[in-house]
């Protein structure tokens, strides 16, 4: 049994790592990481805009975004992927690669979830910060830019990392539209071997486990540091006093 694992890794590690890269599209673990990093990098600004829109005093801005967030929270990611897979080529009239479709889907989906995190971060700062900034002569936008967002986003760093982890897990669903990621590579290996599905998928699970576990570990240690810092030097002994930011992320 152990020998099987070693053999599979020996024979297919390159396929699992980069897919058929020099001779075909980039795939495997590299593509999973690139896809999730791009998705989170693009979802981040989108989520800030959505959070600001949800906190805006104009209904015209607030209602559609609130609706979008609720729809995204209530509909499976798979359904959203199918929508994008159908709609994007229809609207652009081009042959869009599945990688791009998956990227757009993830930006919408994670943008909506992250916007809840950003909103919670802004709300948890309290009204006093905004009032103080305005008293010092900042306008609304400038207060947001220089006072509110820097604090809110700093407190959000752990949530961002856990969103990154759930994005990595979300990319696996690209399997249904044949995005060449790690899961896709593993099922290719399985199709070539045919006789050792358990071994192949266990290797897949272990790779994801190591990846997500180490990122979660980093997130937790940063969270502890931030909680200490928010508590301030005098209360350093009482970190529990600072209310921990609610981590709102989607599990998958």
């Amino acid at each position: 049994m152990i020998q099987d694992f070693i053999n599979i890794i020996n024979d297919y590690w390159l396929l699992l790592l980069i897919g058929q890269y020099p001779n075909g599209p980039l795939g495997g673990l590299a593509n999973t990481l690139i896809l999730s990093a791009l998705a989170i990098a693009l979802a981040f600004p989108v989520s800030i805009l959505m959070a600001l829109a949800r906190l805006s005093k104009w209904r015209l801005l607030r209602w559609p975004v609130t609706g979008l967030v609720y729809v995204t929270r209530g509909v499976p990611l798979l359904m959203l992927i199918l929508w994008c897979y159908f709609v994007i080529p229809l609207w652009t009239g081009a042959d869009v690669p599945s990688f791009l479709i998956m990227l757009v889907t993830l930006v919408i989906y994670q943008g909506a979830f992250l916007s809840e995190v950003v909103r919670a971060g802004i709300v948890s700062l309290g009204q006093g910060q905004m009032d103080a900034a305005k008293a010092l002569g900042h306008g609304h936008m400038s207060a947001m830019r220089f006072v509110i967002l820097p604090q809110a986003l700093y407190n959000m760093i752990p949530s961002m990392i856990s969103t990154f982890v759930s994005t990595i897990k979300d990319t696996t669903l690209g399997y249904v539209i044949n995005v060449p990621d790690l899961t896709f590579a593993a099922s290719q290996v399985n199709n070539q071997l045919l006789t050792q599905p358990f071994q192949v998928f266990l290797i897949l699970a272990v790779v994801y486990y190591i990846l997500c576990w180490s990122l979660t570990y980093v997130a937790n240690s940063i969270e502890r540091r931030i909680t200490r810092r928010r508590a301030g030097p005098r209360n350093a002994r009482l970190p529990a006093e600072a209310a921990p930011l609610k981590t709102i992320t989607e599990q998958l």
Binding site: T183, S187, F198, A205, Y209, C212, T216
Partner: peptide, 23 residues
């Protein structure tokens, strides 16, 4: 808890259906 939270659900299902089923 650690295993089930850090491995994507899709991969867990695949491991069950394609892997453990055959064993």
């Amino acid at each position: 808890v650690s295993y089930h939270r850090n491995v994507p659900t899709l991969v867990q299902l695949m491991l069950w259906y394609f892997g453990i089923f055959t064993l």
